[in-house]
Design a protein around this nucleic acid. Structure first.
Length: 296
DNA sequence: GCACAGGTAGATT
DNA sequence: AATCTACCTGTG
């Protein structure tokens, strides 16, 4: 059986990744449908299937046979937010006066915030509570295989909210979603009853969009901010999970601060693109770049 | 067997 | 308004 993928092509004008920051961007918890396979990554979003590899200092890509190359290339540019200059944004972060952030920036230079489909980002992060990244990926694959439309290479897209609204909670439970199945079912029913609600939310100013997301069952502040950051390009959104909370309280000496206070600190200290700083810190904490003893 | 994992919502103080 | 606790399930 021939490879269902076309030839490797050089991605001219690719974002300035390093090998490290490419891996962290694709597989560091922003997105859950990339998997490493040999010397390349294979990923899916919307109806796109793409392979990416870092070779000889250049980024290469290959698209599935039967999918339109020009369409996929445009989707790549959107997905990687090539219109955003993350190198310039890094310079605006306060790393010169912040040794914790400086260590993270040095290790993960080139890290990007993806611009994923809003609807899929909501689904993935509704699956994410108290789950580790490999488990979230497994759930997404199971749900896609069970409920999603077939793609060019025979794999499956994630189901849309219309399909999720139709399928019923037991079917979601079967996909190992556990208590998250009820949240997804209820959210799907809500979205089905409110045509255009998701699109209006994506288009709304950040504070209003966050307030709307918080109306959804199973969406609290952390998940809302993940959806805004990774699915709507709102770089000011600063998701605080257990890792980031630990970094802030321990490495920034903010013991005793509550979540709302930490949100204020992040906005004031990191500024307009605090969410980008968050991703550097999150990556560094997981990688152990921020000394573990400082995080206890 | 049992604690714990990139949370949230509802109950209880 | 702050602080518990239940909620599913895979992993160590």
């Amino acid at each position: 059986m021939p490879s269902p993928f076309g030839p490797w092509q050089v991605w001219q004008d690719a974002p300035p990744f390093t090998a490290v920051s490419l891996v962290e961007t694709l597989d560091g918890g922003q997105a859950f449908r990339w998997r490493r396979s040999g010397d390349f990554f294979e990923g899916r979003w919307g109806r796109h299937v793409v392979r990416l590899r870092y070779a000889a200092g250049q980024l290469g890509y290959a698209v599935a046979e039967g999918s339109d190359t020009a369409t996929t290339e445009q989707a790549l540019r959107t997905y990687f937010a090539t219109g955003t200059d993350f190198e310039a944004l890094t310079e605006t972060l306060p790393w010169r006066s912040d040794p914790v952030l400086a260590a993270a920036v040095q290790h993960f230079r080139g890290l990007r915030i993806l611009r994923q489909p809003f609807s899929e980002t909501l689904f993935c992060f509704l699956c994410s509570s108290t789950k580790q990244i490999p488990q979230i990926k497994t759930i997404c694959e199971t749900v896609a295989r069970d409920l999603g439309e077939p793609l060019a290479d025979g794999s499956h897209a994630l189901p849309g909210w219309d399909a999720l609204a139709e399928c019923g909670e037991p079917r979601l439970r079967a996909a190992k979603l556990g208590y998250r199945a009820r949240y997804i079912h209820q959210t799907a029913r809500f979205l089905a009853s409110q045509p255009g609600w998701l699109e209006a939310t994506e288009a709304a100013p950040t504070e209003e969009a966050r307030a709307r997301l918080l109306e959804l069952p199973g969406v609290g502040r952390k998940i809302a901010d993940c959806v805004l950051l990774f699915g709507a390009g709102r770089l000011e959104a600063f998701p605080i999970d257990t890792w980031v909370e630990k970094i802030l309280t321990c490495a920034y000496q903010l013991q005793g601060w509550k979540l709302p206070q930490l949100q204020d600190f992040a906005r004031i200290h990191f500024g307009e693109t605090a969410g980008y700083a968050q991703q550097y810190l999150f990556a560094a904490a997981r990688a152990g770049v921020i000394a573990q003893h400082k995080l206890d």
